[in-house]
């Protein structure tokens, strides 16, 4: 390309549109949640109490903190503090891993109790509870995949920062990964109360 074309606003604009598509992806699941909740209000509440709120609460804290470290990473790079940026990005990735480990233990415990899609014990709890857990596993699972994608993305950007390809002059990529990460956080902020808290 002879004309080096650079349009940071355009890149952010594109990212925002992409985030809309993610919101709509999850909104399909929230629609299912709303419809099923109105169909099985009591069973949903019974099922919700089977979830361990400590796991969920801890993960909420982890994700909120990771959003903070990510936002701080941007300020750091704007000020040209490369080392600080690297540390903050790595902490975000660390927190993402922590989230996944936590999730692993939570799910293992639930699966240990015979609660997983297709299990007979779950089926014995009746259609409402089954539906709650099926939806829960699918929504949280999809969110988990997004955590992995987001962390990988941040990992790539971290390498680019250390190589100096992302720097205080040109950091749209870091900003865009941060936007993505905030979205991952935001989805969880809706997920957590809907499944663990309000019922």
């Amino acid at each position: 390309m002879s004309h080096e074309h650079r349009d940071d606003t355009g890149a952010r604009f594109g990212m925002w549109i992409f985030l809309y598509t993610e919101v709509i992806l999850f909104s399909g699941l929230f629609i299912l949640y709303a419809v099923s909740l109105s169909k099985f209000p009591e069973q949903y509440s019974i099922a919700s109490h089977k979830l361990n709120i400590y796991f969920g609460g801890a993960n909420t804290l982890v994700l909120l903190t990771s959003s903070l470290t990510m936002a701080m990473a941007i300020t750091a790079i704007q000020r040209g503090r490369k080392k600080q940026t690297l540390i903050l990005c790595c902490s975000t990735i660390g927190l993402a891993l922590l989230f996944l480990v936590n999730k692993f233990f939570e799910w293992s415990a639930e699966i240990g109790h015979g609660i997983y899609p297709g299990s007979e014990e779950l089926a014995a709890m009746g259609p409402g509870v089954t539906n709650f857990f099926n939806l829960y596993y699918f929504t949280a699972g999809l969110h988990g995949i997004h955590v992995i994608i987001g962390a990988t993305l941040i990992g790539v950007v971290t390498v680019l920062v250390s190589k100096g390809r992302v720097n205080s002059e040109q950091y749209t990529l870091l900003e865009n990964s941060a936007l993505y990460w905030h979205l991952v956080d935001l989805v969880w902020i809706f997920l957590f109360p809907l499944y663990y808290l309000i019922l």
Binding site: K39, G118, T130
Partner: peptide, 17 residues
């Protein structure tokens, strides 16, 4: 694959959805 059953009436799902 997993029998998630979100559209299966027996599992509390709804095919019309």
């Amino acid at each position: 694959i997993f029998g998630a059953g979100l559209f299966d009436v027996a599992k509390g799902g709804d095919p019309i959805l």
